[in-house]
């Protein structure tokens, strides 16, 4: 469980986050959306412990984040990075096994190898296990990174999974596959927090959406409550149509035509 209360973050007099509060329960997929520079990444970094907040509190499973050691956090909290810059030509299997590093001292156990293998299968990259990571395409690299992150918290009962723009570089199939996998883990009791740029993906997969606008929460709630024409107009400055998903009970957005050619 992730609970954020009155969180503010300030750097060089500029307020990047202002009194943000929300709560993501176990079994929930929470999507964070908002325009560029709205503070999404800052929020994520605060929640993962990479940054320390100026004011406010973040608690994980009921305990303040500052009371955990780096090692403790690594055992149940994993973060899929937005950028990956792996130096040195590691093998895919070696890279996925790195996700198990918090769980062994020097030599991985059979169980660690097993988990790494299962995670690779889960993302459909098992055939690539003995390939060199740096020679893969961007989307393939992203899926291997996902496998690494999943391996890290694979057998935790209440894991916290953070995804920072996870669909970057993925094709349509793998975008949906990634979010399907994320949902599957929420059913195991995980709490997943994902920064998403695609509002349709957020609407389809999220249980709760946090919409940020210049460091403040503009809207929070279920996809139906947050994905509205008004909110999107205010946050993204874009006029859209809302249509119903043909199968699911979730809204989909379609941008209106000709809104950039006219002045206003």
């Amino acid at each position: 469980m992730l609970e954020v209360r009155n969180l503010s973050y300030q750097i060089r007099g500029r307020k990047l986050l202002n009194e943000v509060s929300f709560c993501a329960k176990p079994g929930e997929l929470l999507a964070v959306v908002g325009a560029n520079g709205a503070g999404k990444s800052t929020l994520l970094k605060l929640c993962t412990g990479e940054l320390k907040s100026t004011t406010g509190a973040i608690s994980l499973h009921g305990r303040g984040i500052e009371t955990y050691s780096e090692k403790e956090l690594a055992s149940f909290r994993a973060v899929l990075p937005q950028q990956n810059s792996v130096i040195f030509p590691f093998l895919v299997s070696e890279l996925v096994l790195m996700g198990r590093y918090p769980h062994f001292d020097f030599h991985p156990s059979e169980h660690d190898y097993l988990v790494a293998g299962l995670a690779l299968k889960k993302v459909g990259m098992w055939e690539f296990a003995s390939r060199v990571f740096t020679t893969l395409s961007g989307g393939e690299q992203q899926r291997v990174q996902l496998a690494r992150v999943l391996a890290q918290i694979w057998d935790t009962s209440a894991g916290l999974l953070f995804l920072d723009e996870p669909t970057t570089g993925l094709d349509l199939l793998h975008q949906h596959q990634l979010l399907e996998i994320a949902r599957e883990f929420t059913q195991k009791g995980f709490c997943v927090v994902a920064i998403l740029h695609d509002l349709n993906l957020a609407a389809q997969y999220a249980d709760q959406i946090v919409m940020l606008r210049s460091g403040r929460i503009e809207a929070i709630g279920s996809p139906h409550e947050v994905i509205t024409v008004g909110n999107i107009q205010r946050v993204f400055n874009l006029s859209v149509w809302l249509v119903n998903h043909p199968e699911l009970a979730c809204p989909m957005i379609v941008p209106q035509q000709h809104q950039f050619s006219e002045h206003n």
Partner: peptide, 14 residues
């Protein structure tokens, strides 16, 4: 090895 993933990922992995 973890540093090869970048400093922030290394620190997130403990």
């Amino acid at each position: 090895n973890l540093l090869a993933l970048g400093e922030s990922q290394a620190s997130l992995l403990g």
